[in-house]
Design a binder for these strands. Structure first.
Length: 210
DNA sequence: TGCCAGGCCGGGT
DNA sequence: ACCCGGCATGGC
């Protein structure tokens, strides 16, 4: 796809998700729900400081302690539940760590993740792609905003519709999915803000019909 | 200073 | 099946 080529050559490889371990990535995916990443960073730092950023480590804390640590990322009561739901999910599937989930087939694992209360399509896809390196294209508000601004999609298009919008034209490749989403996030943060967009300097500006 | 941020769930039509 | 309010904090 032209959009990918353009971004890739303009912004170079970013090979991205802020997070060092699969578990950290999964936790980040839950904490970032409708939340600024800056706030999530603070929560992640708190967890790391308390050695709570591992499967075993997080289990050592009560829900109240967990809430104190993740408070900066907002929705802390709900999100603490969601983290515990995810931990229970791992346990139910006798996974000592997140990567143990790799044995499951992608689409099956996606369904399993969606059955966890608090994990929706985007969170599931983020975990699949960035924590487990399985080819599941991630659609987020940034993706939606950019392609809506380019008049290629309707603003309130359904998640799976938008996902297949990409699946139809992209080869199913982990690195491609990873990099494309990363580039879209970078682009949106830089030039495609909700208010005050700067399409002149955006690498994708040339695709906008004027 | 109000508005916004990388969703998701549950209850009401 | 759709629509909408609630959830919470810190940054700009």
């Amino acid at each position: 796809m032209d959009y990918y080529e353009t971004l890739s050559s303009a912004l170079g490889p970013s090979h991205w998700w802020p997070g060092e371990t699969p578990f950290e990535i999964a936790v980040g995916a839950i904490l970032v729900q409708n939340t600024n990443w800056k706030n999530v960073e603070k929560a992640i730092t708190n967890l790391k400081t308390n050695n709570a950023l591992t499967v075993q480590g997080m289990r050592n804390y009560s829900i109240n302690e967990l809430q104190d640590m993740i408070k900066p990322s907002g929705f802390f009561r709900i999100k603490s539940e969601r983290l515990l739901n995810f931990l229970n999910f791992l346990e139910e599937n006798s996974a000592e760590c997140v990567t143990d989930l790799c044995e499951f087939e992608t689409s099956q694992l996606r369904e399993m993740l969606l059955s966890v209360k608090g994990i929706g399509p985007e969170t599931a896809d983020s975990i699949l792609l960035y924590a487990l390196e399985k080819p599941s294209f991630v659609v987020d508000a940034y993706t939606r905003r950019i392609f809506n601004r380019h008049m290629l999609i309707h603003e309130d298009i359904d998640y799976h519709e938008l996902q297949s919008f990409f699946a139809d034209v992209l080869t199913e490749d982990v690195q491609l999915f990873n990099e494309f989403h990363a580039l879209l996030v970078k682009t949106a943060k830089e030039w495609c803000k909700k208010t005050n967009p700067n399409c002149e300097k955006c690498p994708l500006g040339k695709f906008l019909q004027s």
